[in-house]
């Protein structure tokens, strides 16, 4: 899904369209105006709101909100979660894309659909399933308690829920990419006597590295921002199991609106950086496409 939703080729500007094929100037400007209006209303306005609310009490309050121990702890947990979830999902994405694009086997379509499943599952449900599985009343709960292993209401639960939600990102990004490349290069390498790991490292990886990075960046953005799923499994222990989005909710509920938006602006910054990196990668990828 993400593969479509964020097509690497989006944003490539098309060659000039001949005059007789384009619309009259008036219509063009009306359409452009309408498009700008929508983007302004839907996307830009929320951005401005976050910023203006974040700074409504001035710079100092803004910085204080970010330097608060609970905020820092939330930031640490958010980073930790991403550091675990993103590489694991990337590893999975590589394996899945390799199996799916380089080989033919029965049940492939089902597999592809199943990989997409977490996209369509409500985040709330993704949290719920882990509560049902690992909660004290859940299937494995009693055993886990006996062995004093904490999953729910601790970091592992948060990581798991995040992994579920961001599960398909890398795979979805890589599959169309590797499909387009076919298997000739790798087969040639194998016929020249190269072994599996080497083929992957020397032939496949250089070809897909931008796509991989791109998938990881999207995966990371989502991992850091997940709210619904994490909220169900977190337990909301201050300074310990609150991620940044949960910390925002808490501040919001404590009438600390400026602080809530200050922390929100941090996540927004992350989103904007993600988009910038993404568009840089896009131009590299499309550049590569044309040079190839």
């Amino acid at each position: 899904m993400a593969g479509i939703a964020t097509n690497p080729r989006a944003g490539e500007s098309h060659a000039d369209i001949p005059k007789h094929l384009t619309e009259p100037r008036v219509i063009r400007w009306i359409l452009i105006g309408a498009a700008l209006l929508f983007v302004g209303l839907i996307v830009v306005l929320p951005l401005i709101t976050v910023l203006s609310q974040a700074f409504s009490k001035g710079w100092e309050a803004y910085l204080t909100a970010l330097k608060e121990p609970d905020a820092l702890a939330a930031l640490r947990l958010t980073l930790l979660t991403a550091v675990i979830a993103v590489p694991l999902n990337s590893l999975f994405g590589l394996a899945a894309a390799w199996a799916i694009t380089k080989f033919q086997f029965r049940g492939k379509n089902v597999l592809v659909t199943l990989i997409d499943l977490p996209f369509a599952v409500s985040p709330v449900i993704s949290g719920l399933i882990y509560v049902l599985l690992f909660g004290a009343q859940g299937l494995l709960g009693p055993w886990l308690q006996e062995h004093n292993i904490h999953i729910i209401f601790a970091t592992p639960g948060i990581v798991l829920a995040t992994m579920f939600v961001t599960f398909p990102f890398v795979a979805r990004e890589l599959i169309p990419f590797m499909e387009a490349q076919g298997v000739e290069d790798e087969e040639a390498a194998v016929s020249l006597g190269a072994r599996g790991w080497r083929v992957f490292r020397k032939v496949t990886l250089p070809n897909i590295k931008w796509g991989l990075l791109y998938g990881m960046i999207l995966c990371n953005a989502r991992a850091m921002g997940e709210f619904g799923a994490v909220s169900v499994v977190s337990g909301h222990i201050r300074g310990e199991t609150n991620t940044l989005p949960l910390h925002i909710e808490i501040l919001y509920n404590e009438y600390q609106f400026a602080a809530a938006f200050a922390v929100a602006s941090l996540l927004m910054l992350l989103a904007v950086v993600t988009l910038i990196v993404k568009s840089v990668l896009e131009s590299r990828m499309s550049g590569k496409r044309y040079s190839a």
């Binding site: 640490r76 947990l77 904490h150 970091t155």
Partner: peptide, 29 residues
Amino acid sequence: KNVKSFRLSLIAVLLFTVLSACGSNSGSH
């Protein structure tokens, strides 16, 4: 042989990450 060792290292990586996830929990407080 290469594949096998890759498989082993994969499993090792996986285990390690899961363990570190648990470990870092108690570490974080």
